[in-house]
Simulated assay, not measured.
Amino acid sequence: MIAMRRLILAAAAALALAACGANERAARHDPELDRLFVQLEQAPDAETAAPIQQAIMAKWSDSGSPTVNVLIERATAAAAEGDAEMAEGFLDQASALAPDYAEPWRLRANIAYGAEDYAGAIEAIQETLKREPRHFGAMAGLGLIYEELGQHRAALEAFRAALVVHPHYEVALEGVRRLEPRVDGRDA
Rank of each mutant, 00 (worst) to 15 (best):
I52K: 03
W60V: 12
R134C: 08
E180W: 00
A19H: 12
N69C: 09
M86Y: 14
R182H: 09
R74Q: 15
G89W: 00
R108D: 02
R74G: 02
M86L: 15
A140M: 07
I125M: 12
E73H: 11
S63F: 01
L36W: 01
H152V: 03
L36M: 08
P133D: 12
G143K: 09
H29S: 15
I145M: 04
A84P: 08
A98H: 03
S61L: 08
D62L: 10
G185A: 07
T76F: 07
P44S: 07
A49Q: 08
A94V: 02
A155T: 06
A3L: 13
R25M: 03
L156R: 11
L7Q: 14
Q39G: 05
A119W: 03
F90N: 11
P44R: 05
G114H: 05
E24P: 07
Q93H: 14
I2D: 12
A27E: 11
E123S: 09
A138I: 02
E148L: 15
A121C: 03
E123T: 11
D100S: 12
D187M: 12
R160H: 07
A50E: 14
S95V: 05
W105K: 15
K130T: 08
L142G: 09
H166N: 15
E127Q: 13
L163W: 01
A84M: 13
A124Y: 05
L7P: 09
I122E: 15
P99V: 03
P181S: 08
L40Q: 00
I2W: 08
M139Q: 06
K130H: 10
D100I: 01
M86C: 13
D34V: 09
A11N: 12
D117P: 00
